Computed example of a mutant assay.
Amino acid sequence: MTELQHPKDVFNDESRQFALLVNSVTDYAIYMLDTDGVIRTWNPGGQRIKGYTAEDVIGTNFSRFYLPDDAAAGVPERNLRTAATEGRCIEDGWRVRQDGSRFLASVVIDPIWVDGVLVGYAKVTRDITERHDAQERLQQVQHSLLQAQKMEAIGKLTLGLAHDFNNLLTIIVNCLDLISVRVKDGPAAKLIETALRAAERGALLSRQLLTFGRGQKLSPERLDLTASLRQSQEILERSVGEAVKLVFDLHEDLPCVFVDKAQLEAAVLNLVCNSRDAMPNGGTITISTGAREARDPASANGALEQHVCLTVEDDGEGIPIAHQARVFEPFFTTKPVGRGSGLGLSQVFGFTTQSGGFPQLSSAPGEGTRIVLCFPIHEP
């Protein structure tokens, strides 16, 4: 190879020009393999992506970059055979860096033929982990947005139905009241009383529907979440029964929230009763409060903001994955027929969103359920 008289003379030397090109690429690992998969060349891109220097890898088999299970299953050899028989092997898969961390790689393997004889392979690897993570985040945001739009549509439908239902109940209750004035005793009076109780039950259901549809008028006030839960501690302990242990992990000096106290107590009671029902053989329910950054799934920008959060967690049966997207819908319940109206969690959802917050659910079958109510901080 002749000495270069001027740096630009490299363009007149094809071999040096090619070496300069390969060694200047840092976003791609570009290297050659022999027919057995042994690494023969290495570029700076390989070192940047995988962490190995040329001295570390040249002379070793490229299967070292594969996950142990993939290497044991013969995936590296299979990829070389595919490249040789089909002319190219293109694959996305997880690989291992020198430090043991994993990354998602986009790999292209091309066979190298000289006079019809296979002499090795050219391998190009690109790290696409960031793109993969960005796509996953985008899918999560899209899923959350679709779920929020679905719940909004259900809420609008529920709101209209609840208003009409409430108007009909008002007429029924008024008529029963007028009849009860005239009928004081006898079998008819007992029937009227039974009808009134049923109408009152219907009115309660109507209020729960209105809460879900954000049509229930709230009376919000500046509230210390921890102090409010301490006031409700006795009634919550009575509601769980003897077989269930109720644990409180309440943080002091939290920022205040602006919510309806009665609706908050009803929401917590609904969550505790749901957890109790999910543990027929007993267990533990933990109620906790705290402040943390959270992202509203219905928010357009999806920015992290500081929230005061109330968490109800149990170690019960958990919720089947297929049902988790529907648990906040009105009349949807996983309980047996006659065990619940399916309006408890819809009330929780409606109250939380109407208060400017949002609920978060995480559950695994057999491992329990965790519901977090996130409320915006109230600035005085």
Rank of each mutant, 00 (worst) to 15 (best):
M1T: 01
E3F: 06
L4K: 02
D9R: 00
L20M: 11
L21A: 15
V25T: 09
I30S: 06
M32L: 13
L33Y: 12
L33H: 14
T35Y: 04
D36V: 15
P44N: 12
K50E: 03
K50T: 13
Y52R: 13
T53I: 05
A54I: 08
A54S: 12
E55H: 09
D56I: 03
D56H: 00
V57G: 03
G59M: 11
N61Q: 05
Y66T: 11
D69N: 05
A72E: 14
R81A: 15
T82L: 05
T82G: 06
A83V: 01
I90V: 15
E91C: 07
D92S: 15
D92Y: 03
G93D: 14
R97C: 11
Q98P: 03
G100I: 12
A105E: 14
I109Y: 01
G116N: 10
V117Q: 15
V117Y: 07
T125L: 08
T129M: 01
H132F: 09
A134N: 02
Q142Y: 04
H143A: 09
L145R: 12
Q147K: 14
Q149M: 08
M151A: 13
A153V: 12
A153N: 10
I154E: 10
G155D: 05
L161M: 07
L161F: 01
A162P: 11
L168D: 13
T170R: 00
I171Q: 00
I172N: 01
N174I: 00
D177C: 00
I179S: 08
V183E: 07
V183R: 05
D185R: 12
L191K: 04
I192N: 04
I192Y: 04
I192E: 04
E193L: 07
A199G: 14
A199R: 00
E200P: 01
L204S: 11
Q208H: 10
L210I: 02
R214E: 09
K217C: 10
S219W: 00
E221R: 13
L223I: 14
T226V: 10
A227T: 11
L229K: 09
E234S: 12
I235V: 13
S239V: 02
A243G: 06
A243S: 03
V244K: 01
V244Y: 03
K245E: 08
K245T: 01
D249K: 09
D249M: 08
D253R: 05
C256Y: 05
V257I: 11
A262T: 02
L264E: 07
L264K: 12
E265Q: 09
E265Y: 07
A267Q: 02
N270H: 10
L271E: 00
V272L: 09
M279G: 05
N281R: 13
T284H: 05
G290W: 06
A291H: 07
D296F: 04
A298G: 12
G302L: 03
G302W: 01
A303Y: 02
L304T: 08
Q306S: 14
Q306E: 15
C309S: 06
L310V: 09
E317A: 13
P320H: 14
P320F: 03
Q324G: 07
Q324V: 11
A325T: 15
R326T: 15
R326N: 15
F328E: 05
F328Q: 08
F328R: 07
P330R: 02
F331R: 03
F332H: 11
T334E: 07
V337Y: 11
G338F: 04
G342C: 02
S346C: 04
T352P: 07
T352C: 14
T353F: 14
L361E: 14
L361M: 12
S362M: 05
T369M: 01
C374N: 15
F375L: 07
